[in-house]
Write a protein that binds this DNA or RNA. Structure first.
Lengths: 342, 342
DNA sequence: CTGACTTACTTAAACGTTTAAGTACGATCC
DNA sequence: GGATCGTACTTAAACGTTTAAGTAAGTCAG
């Protein structure tokens, strides 16, 4: 591999001049610039990023720690991220923490060692304490958190407004004629958890009921585990009530698909006998029949916003204060709430 | 951040001695070693990986280029990879090429720039020409391909035996009493494609029929696109044949789920009226009811084998010849071929 | 014509390691 | 008691950049 030295000697200038040409310094004469450029091409020279990093203390890469790559939501975010970063000529260091908090320290250390220019933490995977330590040890590195609220100076949180999402989902059901709207909720959040508000989906549900003047019935709220089977079981319980619901808002798609299955097994005809709205818009939601109406997470927006924001902060320096950006989930209407119009 | 110099002066030795302590050189006296160790702890010293890389021309990272991170199969492989690499104290550079061949060059260049110690190419994303160029330009970097056969000296291909998988899937159906076994195949592979043999699943299907003495009926072979809808449509066509099949081997799970849907819509009772086997074992295959019997890809094995192999080759040098390792898909029996035993 | 300023460079130190080569000193051997 | 050897280090160059400081030659005002 050719180095600057080679290019320099070949074009009869010093390495400093070569460096200047590469960085488009304004003082190089046109003739010299051309000569150097030709030498660069002739030798097939490419700057050594490692040497450059050593000098500039930049890694020209950003790090991402994701709690579970298997989760399609996170996967999509990482994908958008990867694309956006390519645009900025930065590469991506990825760690899957596999939900294990104790890997957080290892992963963060790795990121520091690689001298990443920015860090993205996706999901619930790094404890605030550890992140705070990172912020302190690497004071120039901007940090962005996706779907996790931190209250740490310097980190910028990208969140999806779950309350509003829950509200919109429920309102959609009511607007389509539902009068007895149930909800299948996720598990109660642990006291220590600071994950941003999946619990809030429930609050949005309550708000929509209130607004529509529908009375809240605690019997219509079931609790699940976010998994397929639990959604199925929950809907079965709801359907065996003395007066079963005519619509259900389910806190995530996986459970909603379980509920869909249960509804079909019970002989219900969707959307006429029962309407269903999920949350997430996983790829499968469009494939069932009927398709699942659901609140789509702005995966792509989150990924690209994170990349753009990080890029800006790398240029201008990490903000000194914490900030939050709220994004909205958008309603995707499919067959589970709307009869196909032929 | 403390450097070796700090540690050296603090413990009254030269940087060379500090380096020796860090690398466990055998000549350092116990007392000096202890003194240095104490200084390391006191200063919270951590070696600068970038400087180390510059000197040793190693990046202490491996690069992975994946054709589509959204594909759950690839996601799982990457995840296992990420875990295995942590064990070896290496980090992971990831690029999602998004099926765009023209990104191959950019991605490969990025990997070279980052001085990765090894490269993993997952899926059909890098053209042989480009990879050959990489092999030439970075002659020490070992390369492993997963689910893609290259015939290039130095690259080691990890493949899943599709013929055998197709055979096992079909045999399973026959062993469970099927006499008229259909197949829903993937799209015909382009002439230029060197992807390793999804087409071979069909060959395995033929072999199993042959072996069982069942006559092959071309009307029983449908062609799909690997997508959900196409599986659904294909099964509908099969079911409307004068003598429909009593079992179907579907070339991937996505289509198999579509077929499952079609089967249920037709009022068929699985597995009694119809048996179904898919291929891949995507997470969803276990969630439908009945669950989908399928050929599970050895995702985890592929990931960890790639990591281990790479690790070894980084130590011993890249092999000079091409090689292939075959892995088997394993049958996972679920409700679509076996009635639940209560 | 002189001094100040500009242009177009060069020089050399620095970034933080690794490592080959050198060295000082004590022990061992005949 | 001098040569030889082993032990426990140190010295300094190198990896490939970036960049502050230096410089030589030309331009221009007074």
């Amino acid at each position: 591999m050719a180095t600057m030295k080679d290019v320099a000697s070949r074009s009869g200038v010093s390495v400093a001049t070569v460096s200047a040409v590469i960085h488009d310094a304004d003082w190089v004469s046109d003739s010299t610039r051309a000569r150097v450029q030709r030498a660069i091409e002739a030798t097939n020279y490419r700057p050594n990023h490692v040497a450059r990093s050593l000098k500039t203390r930049r890694g020209y890469a950003i790090g991402a720690i994701v709690s579970d790559l298997t989760n399609p939501f996170f996967t999509e975010v990482v994908r958008s991220l990867s694309h956006a970063l390519r645009q900025h000529d930065r590469s991506l260091f990825l760690c899957d923490s596999d939900h294990q908090f104790d890997l957080g320290a290892t992963n963060l250390r790795m990121m520091q060692d690689k001298q990443v220019d920015g860090l993205i933490v996706i999901g619930d995977t790094v404890r605030p304490r550890l992140l705070a330590k990172f912020l302190e040890e690497a004071p120039e590195v901007p940090v962005i958190a996706i779907e996790r609220a931190y209250d740490l100076d310097g980190v910028c949180c990208l969140l999806v407004d779950s309350e509003e999402g829950g509200y919109r989902a429920t309102r959609h059901l009511i607007e389509n004629g539902a009068t007895r709207v149930a909800m299948i909720n996720g598990p109660e959040e642990g006291a220590g958890s600071t994950t941003y508000g999946r619990a809030k989906r429930y609050e949005g549900y309550r708000r929509a009921l209130n607004e529509a003047g529908l009375t809240f019935d605690a019997a219509l709220v079931e609790q699940g585990t976010f998994r397929y089977e639990s959604g199925k079981a929950a809907l079965n319980r709801l359907l065996s009530l003395p007066t079963p619901p005519d619509a259900v808002f389910v806190a995530n798609d996986m459970m909603a698909l379980g509920a869909l299955e249960a509804a079909r097994n019970s002989g219900r005809n969707l959307p006429h006998d029962l309407m269903l709205v999920g949350y997430d818009d996983i790829p499968l939601a469009s494939l069932t029949s009927p398709g699942l109406t659901t609140m789509a997470m702005p995966k792509h927006t989150l990924g690209t916003t994170a990349a753009t924001l990080l890029h800006k902060q790398i240029e201008t320096g990490r903000p000194t204060t914490a900030s939050r950006h709220m994004f909205d989930a958008t309603l995707v209407v499919r067959g589970s709430t709307r009869a196909p119009t032929p």
